[in-house]
Computed example of a mutant assay.
Amino acid sequence: MTEFLEKTGQEYEGDHDRPLAAYARVIGVYGAAVTAAAVAAKLTGKRPPERIGPMDLTLMAACTHKLARLLAKDPVTSPIRAPFTRYQGVSGPSELKEEPRNTIGELLSCPFCIAQWVATGYAVGLVFAPRATRLAGAAMTAVAASDWLRLAYAKLMKSVE
């Protein structure tokens, strides 16, 4: 089996260096975390919401967007990423550009990659602590809306000059 996986990895990579084994471990950790949450819910009698309404979905989407960008790009969270990334400069308003050093760095510096983990955490929060999760979601949504308004205001001010 190991030989098959190595051969498959080599054929997939070609002349490129793609860390398939590391990606498989990340997938395994994600699957284990979701499984652990499901087992904990079963053991504690917690059940997922019967349905996710439009407001919950809106909060979840905006919160996931903001928290993923905060974790992956914000200067204040750079100490979390520093062991796994290398600083490259500024990439936008209050955002850093960092080069991943390894697979964890790739996950932590990519808002698209970390968003799945954030959304899953939010969903788990709706099972175990829905009120606190909605409150945190509303706070992150307000921060996201504030960012968008600030960017729109700056653009408007440039057009007036």
Rank of each mutant, 00 (worst) to 15 (best):
T141C: 01
G89V: 10
S146C: 01
L57Q: 00
L156R: 02
L43D: 04
K42F: 12
H65Y: 15
G137Q: 08
L149D: 01
M157T: 13
K42R: 03
G14H: 12
A61T: 15
R134L: 11
G92F: 11
A32Y: 08
G45E: 07
F128G: 04
D17T: 13
A123K: 05
F128T: 07
A142G: 01
R51K: 13
L149N: 00
A40Y: 09
L107N: 06
V29G: 04
E3K: 13
L149E: 03
C63I: 01
D56F: 03
E95S: 15
L126K: 12
I80S: 04
C63A: 04
S109P: 03
A62E: 05
A22G: 11
K46I: 01
R51G: 00
A132S: 09
A154L: 08
R131A: 03
T133I: 03
V76E: 05
V127W: 14
A129F: 12
C110Q: 12
D147M: 05
V127G: 02
A61F: 15
R134S: 06
V39A: 12
G121V: 11
A62P: 01
L156M: 09
G105C: 10
V160Q: 12
K97C: 04
A41G: 15
A82S: 12
I104S: 06
V34Q: 02
